[in-house]
């Protein structure tokens, strides 16, 4: 470990706000990119099922 205490680790020798904000923003963007296809997939599956049901009723 490069840092003696946890507080040192957070402070990053005065560069804490820069390092942690960079990592934080990256985390948010990555999570958004993971969630987007998961949510989209759910919607798609529901839509395909709904369409199939309607077609069955019509025929």
């Amino acid at each position: 470990m490069e840092f003696e205490t946890f507080a040192d680790f957070i402070a990053m020798g005065k560069h804490g706000p820069y390092v942690w904000s960079a990592y934080g923003i990256t985390l948010v963007v990555v999570i958004a990119n993971i969630l987007a296809p998961v949510i989209r997939r759910k919607g798609l599956v529901e839509e395909i099922k709904r369409k199939a049901k309607r077609e069955q009723l019509e025929s």
Binding site: E2, F3, M12, G13, A22
Partner: peptide, 23 residues
Amino acid sequence: LGFAPPEKYQGNSYRVIYIHVPA
């Protein structure tokens, strides 16, 4: 973030490299 040595001139701010370069 915690174990690699700090950079000689930039100190700890360089730790951004581990996401900046891959991105």
